[in-house]
Design a protein around this nucleic acid. Structure first.
Length: 194
DNA sequence: GCTAGGATGCTCT
DNA sequence: GAGCATCCTAGCC
């Protein structure tokens, strides 16, 4: 178990987003360990990004983004889903990487139980949170700790880049990163590889 | 197989 | 009161 240190997150958001591809997200729950390899991320670059929650300043909901890097920012989307982000940059300089999709590695039976189904376990931000049992109570959790953390995985052979998904503003920015050809990325726009 | 549209409720204006 | 970093299903091809 070797969680990424704070220094990993205290860098430009787009760099962190790209480097998180292939890394392994681990959640130690009471029922057991659940983990998956990150295959899709999106970068949200703080106060200058119109698609970022932090664009219009700090609110009670997004204050974690303005805090120290290496924390988990979990927010509720569309009233029902939870989405997991990793806070980046530095304190007072908000940035976050949205984890959009995982390739399940361990704890498959727990994911299936959490999701109530056996397919499409992690190919979307809301789905992967449900599969891993991540809820709003983990907002602000320390990603360098032992309960919820990200560790080094297999380095990706190639990285794909495209516009972000589901945003009304800033969707044209090339800040979505994914593993080309992976069957576990969420459905969305046509893939652009680099 | 794919796509369009409704459900859903919290957050901010 | 409108908007939203989504998901699921019915209906169509």
């Amino acid at each position: 178990m070797h969680p990424f240190p704070i220094e990993f997150y205290a860098r430009p958001t787009a760099e962190v987003a790209r480097d998180l591809l292939g890394a392994v997200l681990v959640h130690r729950t009471r029922s057991g360990l659940i983990s998956g390899q990150i295959v899709e991320t999106e970068a949200y670059c703080g106060s200058e990004d119109p698609g970022s929650h932090a664009f219009r300043g700090s609110t009670p909901r997004n204050e974690v983004m303005f805090g120290a890097p290496g924390r988990a920012y979990v927010y509720r989307s569309y009233g029902i889903h939870a989405c997991l982000n990793a806070v980046t940059e530095s304190e007072g300089n908000p940035g976050a990487v949205l984890i959009r999709a995982l390739q399940p590695l361990s704890g498959l039976h727990l994911m299936e139980r959490n999701r109530g189904r056996c397919d499409d376990l992690c190919n979307g931000p809301g789905k992967l949170c449900q599969a891993l049992g991540i809820g709003l109570e983990l907002n602000g959790a320390d990603l360098t700790g032992t309960e919820l953390y990200i560790e080094l995985g297999e380095a990706p052979a190639a990285v794909g880049v495209s516009g972000r998904i589901g945003l009304s503003r800033g969707a044209d920015l090339q800040l979505r990163f994914f593993l080309p050809g992976s069957p576990f990325v969420s459905r969305g726009k046509p893939h652009v590889t680099q």
